[in-house]
Design a protein around this nucleic acid. Structure first.
Length: 443
RNA sequence: GCGAUCGUAGCUCAGUUGGUUAGAGCGCCGGUUUGUGGUACCGGAGGUCGGGGGUUCGAGACCCCUCGGUCGCCCCA
Protein backbone atom coordinates (compact mmCIF):
# COMPACT_ATOMS: atom_id res chain seq x y z
CA UNK A 1 0.00 0.00 0.00
CA UNK A 2 1.33 3.37 -0.96
CA UNK A 3 2.15 5.63 1.91
CA UNK A 4 -0.05 8.71 2.17
CA UNK A 5 1.91 11.94 1.92
CA UNK A 6 1.15 14.06 4.99
CA UNK A 7 -0.10 17.45 3.85
CA UNK A 8 1.99 20.51 4.71
CA UNK A 9 0.80 23.92 5.76
CA UNK A 10 0.91 26.46 2.94
CA UNK A 11 4.18 28.34 2.88
CA UNK A 12 4.14 31.48 4.97
CA UNK A 13 1.03 30.50 6.95
CA UNK A 14 1.03 29.81 10.67
CA UNK A 15 -0.86 27.65 13.11
CA UNK A 16 -0.95 29.91 16.12
CA UNK A 17 -1.24 27.95 19.34
CA UNK A 18 -0.17 27.93 22.96
CA UNK A 19 2.12 30.76 24.00
CA UNK A 20 1.97 32.41 20.57
CA UNK A 21 -1.80 32.40 20.74
CA UNK A 22 -1.69 34.01 24.21
CA UNK A 23 0.51 36.76 22.81
CA UNK A 24 -1.70 37.24 19.78
CA UNK A 25 -4.84 37.37 21.90
CA UNK A 26 -3.29 39.80 24.35
CA UNK A 27 -2.38 42.20 21.54
CA UNK A 28 -5.89 42.09 20.09
CA UNK A 29 -7.61 42.48 23.47
CA UNK A 30 -5.40 45.42 24.42
CA UNK A 31 -6.16 47.04 21.07
CA UNK A 32 -9.91 46.53 21.54
CA UNK A 33 -9.75 48.05 25.00
CA UNK A 34 -7.64 51.09 24.07
CA UNK A 35 -9.60 51.76 20.89
CA UNK A 36 -12.74 52.22 23.01
CA UNK A 37 -10.92 54.79 25.14
CA UNK A 38 -10.57 56.86 21.97
CA UNK A 39 -14.11 56.29 20.73
CA UNK A 40 -13.24 54.21 17.68
CA UNK A 41 -16.07 52.04 16.33
CA UNK A 42 -15.26 48.48 15.35
CA UNK A 43 -15.94 47.29 11.77
CA UNK A 44 -15.79 43.90 10.11
CA UNK A 45 -14.73 43.90 6.49
CA UNK A 46 -14.77 41.23 3.78
CA UNK A 47 -11.54 39.31 3.40
CA UNK A 48 -11.80 39.60 -0.37
CA UNK A 49 -12.75 42.46 -2.64
CA UNK A 50 -12.99 43.04 -6.38
CA UNK A 51 -9.41 43.19 -7.64
CA UNK A 52 -10.00 46.74 -8.88
CA UNK A 53 -10.38 48.01 -5.30
CA UNK A 54 -6.69 47.37 -4.66
CA UNK A 55 -5.43 47.88 -8.18
CA UNK A 56 -6.90 51.36 -8.37
CA UNK A 57 -6.14 52.55 -4.86
CA UNK A 58 -2.61 51.19 -4.55
CA UNK A 59 -1.66 51.71 -8.19
CA UNK A 60 -1.02 49.08 -10.84
CA UNK A 61 2.73 49.50 -10.78
CA UNK A 62 3.27 48.97 -7.05
CA UNK A 63 4.92 45.74 -5.92
CA UNK A 64 1.90 44.83 -3.83
CA UNK A 65 -0.43 44.96 -6.79
CA UNK A 66 1.87 43.75 -9.54
CA UNK A 67 3.38 40.73 -7.79
CA UNK A 68 2.12 40.14 -4.27
CA UNK A 69 -1.64 39.79 -4.51
CA UNK A 70 -3.62 36.59 -4.18
CA UNK A 71 -6.00 37.19 -7.06
CA UNK A 72 -8.35 34.61 -8.52
CA UNK A 73 -11.38 34.28 -10.68
CA UNK A 74 -14.51 33.09 -8.91
CA UNK A 75 -17.05 30.74 -10.46
CA UNK A 76 -18.93 33.66 -11.92
CA UNK A 77 -15.82 34.88 -13.73
CA UNK A 78 -15.17 37.93 -11.54
CA UNK A 79 -11.62 38.79 -10.55
CA UNK A 80 -11.33 38.84 -6.77
CA UNK A 81 -8.37 39.46 -4.49
CA UNK A 82 -7.64 38.47 -0.91
CA UNK A 83 -7.06 41.79 0.80
CA UNK A 84 -3.38 42.75 1.06
CA UNK A 85 -4.24 45.71 3.34
CA UNK A 86 -7.22 47.28 5.08
CA UNK A 87 -7.38 50.85 3.90
CA UNK A 88 -8.62 50.24 0.35
CA UNK A 89 -11.47 48.01 1.52
CA UNK A 90 -12.53 50.47 4.18
CA UNK A 91 -12.52 53.28 1.65
CA UNK A 92 -14.63 51.15 -0.67
CA UNK A 93 -17.09 50.45 2.15
CA UNK A 94 -17.21 54.14 2.97
CA UNK A 95 -18.35 54.83 -0.57
CA UNK A 96 -20.69 51.88 -1.12
CA UNK A 97 -22.50 52.32 2.21
CA UNK A 98 -22.80 56.08 2.16
CA UNK A 99 -20.86 56.44 5.38
CA UNK A 100 -20.36 60.11 4.57
CA UNK A 101 -23.39 60.67 6.82
CA UNK A 102 -21.36 59.44 9.82
CA UNK A 103 -18.41 61.76 9.25
CA UNK A 104 -16.22 62.23 11.21
CA UNK A 105 -15.81 58.49 11.19
CA UNK A 106 -13.39 56.76 13.52
CA UNK A 107 -13.03 53.09 12.63
CA UNK A 108 -10.94 50.21 13.84
CA UNK A 109 -10.64 46.61 12.77
CA UNK A 110 -8.25 43.69 12.79
CA UNK A 111 -7.85 40.44 10.95
CA UNK A 112 -5.91 38.47 8.35
CA UNK A 113 -4.22 40.00 5.31
CA UNK A 114 -2.56 38.19 2.43
CA UNK A 115 0.58 38.94 0.49
CA UNK A 116 2.59 36.61 -1.73
CA UNK A 117 6.04 37.40 -0.34
CA UNK A 118 9.14 35.48 0.67
CA UNK A 119 8.47 34.53 4.31
CA UNK A 120 10.84 35.58 7.09
CA UNK A 121 10.57 36.06 10.80
CA UNK A 122 7.74 38.50 11.39
CA UNK A 123 6.72 38.28 7.73
CA UNK A 124 4.08 35.86 6.55
CA UNK A 125 1.87 35.28 3.54
CA UNK A 126 -1.16 35.28 5.78
CA UNK A 127 -0.49 37.81 8.49
CA UNK A 128 -2.61 39.87 10.83
CA UNK A 129 -2.94 43.54 11.48
CA UNK A 130 -4.64 46.01 13.74
CA UNK A 131 -6.03 48.98 11.88
CA UNK A 132 -7.35 52.40 12.83
CA UNK A 133 -8.68 55.08 10.48
CA UNK A 134 -10.25 58.50 10.77
CA UNK A 135 -12.20 59.52 7.70
CA UNK A 136 -13.55 62.97 6.96
CA UNK A 137 -11.35 65.10 9.18
CA UNK A 138 -8.90 67.38 7.42
CA UNK A 139 -7.54 68.96 10.61
CA UNK A 140 -4.28 67.89 12.22
CA UNK A 141 -6.24 66.96 15.34
CA UNK A 142 -7.12 63.65 13.68
CA UNK A 143 -3.46 62.83 13.01
CA UNK A 144 -2.63 63.66 16.60
CA UNK A 145 -5.45 61.56 18.04
CA UNK A 146 -4.42 58.58 15.93
CA UNK A 147 -0.80 58.90 17.00
CA UNK A 148 -1.73 59.21 20.67
CA UNK A 149 -3.86 56.11 20.29
CA UNK A 150 -0.96 54.23 18.73
CA UNK A 151 1.43 55.46 21.39
CA UNK A 152 -0.85 54.46 24.24
CA UNK A 153 -1.39 51.03 22.68
CA UNK A 154 2.35 50.38 22.58
CA UNK A 155 2.74 51.65 26.13
CA UNK A 156 -0.04 49.42 27.43
CA UNK A 157 1.51 46.47 25.66
CA UNK A 158 4.69 47.30 27.53
CA UNK A 159 6.83 47.52 24.40
CA UNK A 160 7.22 51.26 23.97
CA UNK A 161 10.76 51.22 25.38
CA UNK A 162 12.24 49.47 22.35
CA UNK A 163 10.19 51.45 19.85
CA UNK A 164 10.63 54.96 18.48
CA UNK A 165 8.16 57.08 16.57
CA UNK A 166 9.62 58.47 13.37
CA UNK A 167 7.66 61.30 11.90
CA UNK A 168 7.72 63.21 8.66
CA UNK A 169 5.52 65.35 6.47
CA UNK A 170 5.02 64.95 2.76
CA UNK A 171 3.21 68.25 2.52
CA UNK A 172 0.09 68.95 0.52
CA UNK A 173 -0.22 68.03 -3.15
CA UNK A 174 1.59 71.18 -4.37
CA UNK A 175 4.43 70.92 -1.86
CA UNK A 176 4.82 67.29 -2.62
CA UNK A 177 4.94 67.77 -6.37
CA UNK A 178 7.46 70.61 -6.09
CA UNK A 179 9.66 68.57 -3.79
CA UNK A 180 9.36 65.56 -6.02
CA UNK A 181 10.50 67.55 -9.04
CA UNK A 182 13.47 68.87 -7.09
CA UNK A 183 14.38 65.35 -6.02
CA UNK A 184 14.16 63.98 -9.53
CA UNK A 185 16.40 66.77 -10.73
CA UNK A 186 18.90 66.07 -7.96
CA UNK A 187 18.95 62.32 -8.59
CA UNK A 188 19.01 62.79 -12.34
CA UNK A 189 22.21 64.79 -11.93
CA UNK A 190 23.81 61.90 -9.99
CA UNK A 191 22.16 59.16 -11.95
CA UNK A 192 25.35 57.39 -12.92
CA UNK A 193 26.43 57.03 -9.29
CA UNK A 194 23.17 55.52 -8.11
CA UNK A 195 22.73 51.79 -7.53
CA UNK A 196 20.89 49.83 -10.17
CA UNK A 197 17.85 49.52 -7.89
CA UNK A 198 17.74 53.24 -7.37
CA UNK A 199 18.08 53.96 -11.07
CA UNK A 200 14.91 51.91 -11.43
CA UNK A 201 13.30 53.80 -8.58
CA UNK A 202 14.07 57.04 -10.36
CA UNK A 203 11.62 56.00 -13.05
CA UNK A 204 8.92 54.46 -10.90
CA UNK A 205 9.22 55.81 -7.38
CA UNK A 206 11.88 58.49 -6.91
CA UNK A 207 10.96 59.27 -3.28
CA UNK A 208 12.03 55.76 -2.36
CA UNK A 209 15.65 56.52 -3.17
CA UNK A 210 15.69 58.62 -0.01
CA UNK A 211 15.47 55.63 2.31
CA UNK A 212 17.60 53.32 0.18
CA UNK A 213 19.83 50.97 2.16
CA UNK A 214 22.38 50.76 -0.66
CA UNK A 215 25.67 52.18 0.56
CA UNK A 216 26.51 53.94 -2.71
CA UNK A 217 23.13 55.71 -2.64
CA UNK A 218 23.55 57.18 0.82
CA UNK A 219 25.70 60.24 -0.01
CA UNK A 220 23.37 61.18 -2.86
CA UNK A 221 20.23 60.56 -0.80
CA UNK A 222 21.64 62.41 2.21
CA UNK A 223 22.54 65.44 0.14
CA UNK A 224 19.11 65.51 -1.51
CA UNK A 225 16.89 68.47 -0.65
CA UNK A 226 14.54 68.17 2.34
CA UNK A 227 10.88 68.84 1.83
CA UNK A 228 10.99 71.72 4.30
CA UNK A 229 12.09 74.22 1.67
CA UNK A 230 9.14 73.27 -0.54
CA UNK A 231 6.38 73.23 2.06
CA UNK A 232 3.58 75.70 1.53
CA UNK A 233 2.71 77.83 4.53
CA UNK A 234 -0.44 75.73 5.03
CA UNK A 235 1.55 72.50 4.96
CA UNK A 236 4.10 73.95 7.34
CA UNK A 237 1.34 75.05 9.69
CA UNK A 238 -0.28 71.61 9.50
CA UNK A 239 2.91 69.83 10.47
CA UNK A 240 3.48 72.28 13.30
CA UNK A 241 0.03 71.50 14.66
CA UNK A 242 0.77 67.78 14.56
CA UNK A 243 4.03 68.12 16.49
CA UNK A 244 2.50 70.54 19.00
CA UNK A 245 -0.33 68.12 19.59
CA UNK A 246 2.06 65.22 20.13
CA UNK A 247 4.06 67.21 22.61
CA UNK A 248 0.88 68.14 24.47
CA UNK A 249 -0.09 64.46 24.69
CA UNK A 250 3.36 63.48 25.90
CA UNK A 251 4.10 61.41 22.83
CA UNK A 252 7.79 61.42 22.04
CA UNK A 253 8.83 61.46 18.39
CA UNK A 254 11.81 62.09 16.16
CA UNK A 255 11.82 63.80 12.81
CA UNK A 256 12.97 61.58 9.98
CA UNK A 257 13.06 63.69 6.86
CA UNK A 258 13.96 60.62 4.79
CA UNK A 259 10.77 58.78 5.74
CA UNK A 260 8.54 58.63 2.68
CA UNK A 261 5.58 56.86 1.15
CA UNK A 262 5.64 55.52 -2.36
CA UNK A 263 1.99 56.01 -3.16
CA UNK A 264 0.76 59.25 -4.61
CA UNK A 265 -2.33 59.61 -2.47
CA UNK A 266 -0.34 60.15 0.72
CA UNK A 267 -0.28 63.73 2.02
CA UNK A 268 1.12 65.50 5.04
CA UNK A 269 1.78 63.21 7.96
CA UNK A 270 3.75 59.99 7.51
CA UNK A 271 4.95 57.97 10.47
CA UNK A 272 6.43 54.69 11.56
CA UNK A 273 6.99 53.16 14.97
CA UNK A 274 10.25 51.29 14.52
CA UNK A 275 12.17 48.77 16.60
CA UNK A 276 15.64 47.34 16.11
CA UNK A 277 14.67 44.02 17.68
CA UNK A 278 13.06 42.39 14.68
CA UNK A 279 15.83 42.58 12.10
CA UNK A 280 14.67 43.73 8.69
CA UNK A 281 11.06 43.73 9.85
CA UNK A 282 11.58 46.69 12.17
CA UNK A 283 8.39 48.57 11.39
CA UNK A 284 5.80 47.64 13.94
CA UNK A 285 3.12 50.22 13.27
CA UNK A 286 2.91 52.63 10.37
CA UNK A 287 0.54 55.00 8.70
CA UNK A 288 -0.17 58.44 7.44
CA UNK A 289 -2.64 60.77 5.88
CA UNK A 290 -4.16 59.64 2.60
CA UNK A 291 -6.38 62.48 1.49
CA UNK A 292 -6.17 61.39 -2.15
CA UNK A 293 -7.26 57.77 -1.81
CA UNK A 294 -11.04 57.90 -1.77
CA UNK A 295 -10.93 60.16 -4.80
CA UNK A 296 -8.87 57.54 -6.64
CA UNK A 297 -11.74 55.09 -6.09
CA UNK A 298 -14.09 57.48 -7.81
CA UNK A 299 -15.44 59.10 -4.65
CA UNK A 300 -15.54 62.73 -3.57
CA UNK A 301 -12.39 64.37 -2.25
CA UNK A 302 -12.27 63.06 1.31
CA UNK A 303 -9.59 63.62 3.93
CA UNK A 304 -8.47 60.55 5.87
CA UNK A 305 -5.68 59.32 8.13
CA UNK A 306 -4.90 55.89 9.43
CA UNK A 307 -2.39 53.34 10.60
CA UNK A 308 -1.90 49.61 10.70
CA UNK A 309 0.20 47.42 12.98
CA UNK A 310 1.40 43.85 12.61
CA UNK A 311 -0.10 41.68 15.33
CA UNK A 312 2.59 39.02 15.04
CA UNK A 313 5.33 41.61 15.29
CA UNK A 314 3.77 43.24 18.33
CA UNK A 315 3.33 39.81 19.89
CA UNK A 316 6.99 38.97 19.36
CA UNK A 317 7.99 42.12 21.24
CA UNK A 318 5.96 41.28 24.34
CA UNK A 319 8.27 40.46 27.21
CA UNK A 320 6.28 37.52 28.54
CA UNK A 321 3.30 35.70 27.22
CA UNK A 322 0.56 36.93 29.55
CA UNK A 323 -0.66 33.86 31.41
CA UNK A 324 -4.39 33.46 31.91
CA UNK A 325 -4.61 31.11 34.88
CA UNK A 326 -7.49 28.78 35.52
CA UNK A 327 -9.22 29.73 38.74
CA UNK A 328 -10.71 26.43 39.85
CA UNK A 329 -9.81 22.83 39.07
CA UNK A 330 -12.50 20.36 40.03
CA UNK A 331 -11.37 16.83 40.87
CA UNK A 332 -14.18 14.32 41.35
CA UNK A 333 -13.56 10.78 42.57
CA UNK A 334 -16.00 8.16 41.43
CA UNK A 335 -19.09 8.18 39.20
CA UNK A 336 -21.55 9.94 41.51
CA UNK A 337 -18.94 12.59 42.28
CA UNK A 338 -18.45 13.14 38.55
CA UNK A 339 -22.08 14.09 38.19
CA UNK A 340 -21.82 16.35 41.22
CA UNK A 341 -18.75 17.93 39.63
CA UNK A 342 -20.88 19.00 36.66
CA UNK A 343 -23.33 20.89 38.84
CA UNK A 344 -20.55 22.46 40.89
CA UNK A 345 -18.79 23.53 37.70
CA UNK A 346 -21.85 25.16 36.21
CA UNK A 347 -22.55 27.00 39.45
CA UNK A 348 -18.99 28.34 39.56
CA UNK A 349 -18.99 29.33 35.91
CA UNK A 350 -22.37 30.95 36.38
CA UNK A 351 -20.73 33.04 39.08
CA UNK A 352 -18.07 34.15 36.56
CA UNK A 353 -15.24 31.94 37.77
CA UNK A 354 -13.27 29.88 35.31
CA UNK A 355 -13.52 26.22 36.26
CA UNK A 356 -12.45 23.01 34.62
CA UNK A 357 -13.17 19.43 35.58
CA UNK A 358 -10.20 17.08 35.66
CA UNK A 359 -12.23 13.92 35.64
CA UNK A 360 -10.18 11.13 34.13
CA UNK A 361 -6.96 9.44 35.03
CA UNK A 362 -5.23 8.88 38.31
CA UNK A 363 -6.05 11.30 41.08
CA UNK A 364 -2.45 12.16 41.66
CA UNK A 365 -2.00 12.89 37.99
CA UNK A 366 -5.02 15.16 37.94
CA UNK A 367 -3.76 17.10 40.90
CA UNK A 368 -0.44 17.56 39.14
CA UNK A 369 -2.31 18.70 36.05
CA UNK A 370 -4.26 21.27 38.06
CA UNK A 371 -1.03 22.55 39.46
CA UNK A 372 0.63 22.63 36.07
CA UNK A 373 -2.07 24.74 34.40
CA UNK A 374 -1.65 27.22 37.23
CA UNK A 375 -5.06 26.73 38.85
CA UNK A 376 -5.51 28.96 41.88
CA UNK A 377 -7.44 26.35 43.82
CA UNK A 378 -8.59 22.76 43.55
CA UNK A 379 -11.99 21.46 44.54
CA UNK A 380 -12.06 17.83 45.57
CA UNK A 381 -15.30 15.89 45.59
CA UNK A 382 -15.28 12.30 46.88
CA UNK A 383 -17.35 9.85 48.93
CA UNK A 384 -16.94 11.75 52.19
CA UNK A 385 -17.84 15.07 50.61
CA UNK A 386 -20.87 13.60 48.85
CA UNK A 387 -22.14 12.52 52.27
CA UNK A 388 -21.51 15.87 53.94
CA UNK A 389 -22.73 17.98 50.99
CA UNK A 390 -19.50 19.97 51.05
CA UNK A 391 -16.30 19.95 49.03
CA UNK A 392 -12.63 20.12 49.83
CA UNK A 393 -11.27 23.53 48.83
CA UNK A 394 -7.52 23.53 48.41
CA UNK A 395 -5.57 26.71 47.80
CA UNK A 396 -2.83 25.50 45.48
CA UNK A 397 -0.50 28.36 46.27
CA UNK A 398 -0.48 27.85 50.04
CA UNK A 399 -1.52 24.18 50.19
CA UNK A 400 -4.13 25.12 52.75
CA UNK A 401 -7.25 22.93 52.54
CA UNK A 402 -10.67 23.43 54.09
CA UNK A 403 -14.09 21.80 53.82
CA UNK A 404 -16.67 24.24 52.49
CA UNK A 405 -20.02 24.26 50.74
CA UNK A 406 -20.11 25.71 47.23
CA UNK A 407 -21.53 29.06 48.31
CA UNK A 408 -18.62 29.49 50.69
CA UNK A 409 -16.22 28.59 47.87
CA UNK A 410 -17.66 31.35 45.74
CA UNK A 411 -17.35 33.85 48.55
CA UNK A 412 -13.79 32.81 49.16
CA UNK A 413 -12.95 33.23 45.48
CA UNK A 414 -14.51 36.69 45.40
CA UNK A 415 -12.36 37.66 48.36
CA UNK A 416 -9.30 36.31 46.59
CA UNK A 417 -10.08 38.22 43.41
CA UNK A 418 -10.93 41.39 45.27
CA UNK A 419 -7.68 41.39 47.20
CA UNK A 420 -5.74 40.89 43.96
CA UNK A 421 -7.53 43.80 42.35
CA UNK A 422 -6.76 45.86 45.42
CA UNK A 423 -3.08 44.93 45.17
CA UNK A 424 -2.83 46.00 41.55
CA UNK A 425 -4.79 49.14 42.32
CA UNK A 426 -2.35 49.93 45.12
CA UNK A 427 0.55 49.33 42.74
CA UNK A 428 -0.99 51.69 40.17
CA UNK A 429 -1.53 54.27 42.87
CA UNK A 430 2.08 54.01 44.00
CA UNK A 431 3.27 54.49 40.42
CA UNK A 432 1.04 57.51 40.07
CA UNK A 433 2.33 59.02 43.30
CA UNK A 434 5.89 58.53 42.11
CA UNK A 435 5.09 60.21 38.81
CA UNK A 436 3.53 63.15 40.61
CA UNK A 437 6.53 63.40 42.92
CA UNK A 438 8.89 63.44 39.93
CA UNK A 439 6.84 66.11 38.25
CA UNK A 440 7.17 68.19 41.39
CA UNK A 441 10.95 67.77 41.38
CA UNK A 442 11.12 68.79 37.74
CA UNK A 443 9.67 72.21 38.39
C1' G B 1 11.91 37.75 -7.71
C1' C B 2 17.63 37.77 -6.16
C1' G B 3 21.77 36.22 -2.71
C1' A B 4 23.28 33.36 1.71
C1' U B 5 22.57 29.70 5.41
C1' C B 6 20.24 25.72 7.91
C1' G B 7 16.74 21.17 8.21
C1' U B 8 18.49 14.43 13.17
C1' A B 9 12.45 12.29 18.64
C1' G B 10 6.98 16.92 20.71
C1' C B 11 11.22 20.82 22.06
C1' U B 12 16.73 22.10 22.35
C1' C B 13 20.64 19.71 20.28
C1' A B 14 24.98 15.49 19.96
C1' G B 15 26.28 12.18 16.05
C1' U B 16 34.32 12.00 15.20
C1' U B 17 37.86 12.03 8.04
C1' G B 18 30.89 7.81 5.11
C1' G B 19 31.31 1.84 8.76
C1' U B 20 27.54 -2.74 12.96
C1' U B 21 20.53 -2.46 16.00
C1' A B 22 20.81 6.70 15.38
C1' G B 23 21.95 9.18 21.11
C1' A B 24 21.33 12.98 25.37
C1' G B 25 18.57 16.61 28.18
C1' C B 26 13.74 18.51 28.73
C1' G B 27 8.68 17.05 27.86
C1' C B 28 5.15 12.82 27.58
C1' C B 29 3.33 7.89 29.63
C1' G B 30 3.91 4.25 33.63
C1' G B 31 5.92 2.70 38.56
C1' U B 32 7.91 3.57 43.80
C1' U B 33 2.82 6.17 46.52
C1' U B 34 -5.05 2.82 44.59
C1' G B 35 -7.93 10.42 48.43
C1' U B 36 -3.80 15.16 47.29
C1' G B 37 0.52 18.98 43.20
C1' G B 38 5.65 21.19 42.78
C1' U B 39 11.04 16.96 44.72
C1' A B 40 13.75 12.28 44.06
C1' C B 41 14.64 7.48 41.97
C1' C B 42 13.32 3.53 38.36
C1' G B 43 11.14 2.05 33.74
C1' G B 44 8.67 2.91 28.88
C1' A B 45 6.82 4.89 24.38
C1' G B 46 8.29 8.10 20.58
C1' G B 47 12.75 8.95 14.70
C1' U B 48 9.92 8.44 6.70
C1' C B 49 17.63 11.48 9.92
C1' G B 50 12.45 17.37 5.47
C1' G B 51 11.31 14.70 0.53
C1' G B 52 13.20 12.43 -4.18
C1' G B 53 17.25 10.78 -7.02
C1' G B 54 22.55 9.64 -7.39
C1' U B 55 27.83 8.09 -5.87
C1' U B 56 29.47 3.76 -2.78
C1' C B 57 30.39 -2.94 -0.65
C1' G B 58 28.13 0.64 2.84
C1' A B 59 25.08 7.53 3.28
C1' G B 60 22.21 11.07 8.85
C1' A B 61 27.12 12.51 6.84
C1' C B 62 29.29 13.24 -0.12
C1' C B 63 26.71 15.13 -5.09
C1' C B 64 22.12 16.86 -7.75
C1' C B 65 17.02 18.30 -7.59
C1' U B 66 13.00 19.70 -4.56
C1' C B 67 10.16 21.42 -0.11
C1' G B 68 10.47 24.29 4.26
C1' G B 69 12.74 27.62 8.03
C1' U B 70 16.11 31.64 8.99
C1' C B 71 19.19 36.09 7.51
C1' G B 72 19.90 40.03 3.96
C1' C B 73 17.99 42.64 -0.78
C1' C B 74 13.31 44.11 -3.04
C1' C B 75 8.84 45.57 -0.75
C1' C B 76 6.38 46.20 3.51
C1' A B 77 3.06 45.64 9.24
Amino acid sequence: MAKIQTPQAVRGTQDIFGEDQERFQHVVETFERVRRLYGFKGVQMPVFEPTAVFARSLGETTDVVSKEMYSFEDRGGDSLTLRPEFTAGISRAYLTNGWQQHVPLKLSTHGPLFRYERPQKGRYRQFHQLDAEIIGVSEAAADVELLCFADQLLKELGISDGVTLQLNTLGDAESRDAWRDALVEHFQAHRADLSKDSQDRLERNPLRILDSKERQDRPIADSAPDIDAYLSTEAKEFFAQVTEGLDACGVSWTRNSRLVRGLDYYRHTAFEFVTDRLGAQGTVLAGGRYDGLIESLGGPVTPAVGWAAGIERLGMLLADAPAVPLELAILPMGDTASVKALSVASELRGSQFSAEIFGSGKFKKRMARANQVGALAAIIIGEDEMASGKVQFKNLATGEQTELDVTAVIEKMWDLRFSEDLDSFDADLTDLEQDVAQLGEGD
